[in-house]
């Protein structure tokens, strides 16, 4: 039989190959679009959190806070920190899990689950007795 009918030949192979190519390109495009620099943001948060703890230690703010049982100086310091950096400092007496002093930046009272936690120990001379305290500093980027 001789067939003179005209028409397209759309083979299953060609459709499949086109589908695979476009799926590959779309996946690549989506992955590249969603890529962000959160890794370096996380490194910045950790470094800045450790800086904050170091400044609290080296400035004597922690000692003054436990001696006066007053968090206002630490509150003022945290509120002056730039960016959308949020921090909450809990100071506990050695062996206690109950915070003696809680200080946080304004609008930063709700600590997210993924906040970076740094813990350090310091001593203070209170009424002639040297006592040890733990600083727990939770940091995160708000918004």
């Amino acid at each position: 039989m001789i067939c003179n009918a005209k028409g397209f030949v759309i083979s299953f192979d060609s459709i499949l190959s086109l589908f695979v190519i476009f799926a590959f390109l779309t996946a690549s495009f989506t992955i590249l679009s969603s890529a962000d620099l959160s890794g370096s943001d996380s490194a910045f948060l950790q470094a800045f959190s450790l800086d904050t703890a170091a400044v609290l230690h080296n400035s004597g703010m922690l000692e003054r806070a436990v001696q006066s049982e007053d968090s206002s100086e630490i509150d003022a310091f945290l509120n002056m920190l730039p960016f959308s950096y949020c921090a909450r400092a809990d100071i506990m007496e050695e062996g206690s899990s109950f915070p003696l002093i809680v200080s946080s930046r304004l609008r930063c009272s709700d600590v997210p689950a993924n906040a970076f936690l740094s813990r350090s120990v310091f001593s203070s001379n209170v009424s002639g007795n040297v006592s040890f305290y733990t600083l727990e500093l939770r940091s995160w980027i708000s918004g």
Partner: peptide, 28 residues
């Protein structure tokens, strides 16, 4: 042409991503 468009978009994004990352990483 669609394939070329996709490739150019991906290429531009990759360059921007790498430049941004290099800038941030170097500064930090």
């Amino acid at each position: 042409s669609i394939v070329f468009y996709y490739f150019s978009q991906i290429s531009q994004r990759e360059i921007a991503f790498n430049e941004g990352f290099e800038l941030k990483d170097s500064a930090f």
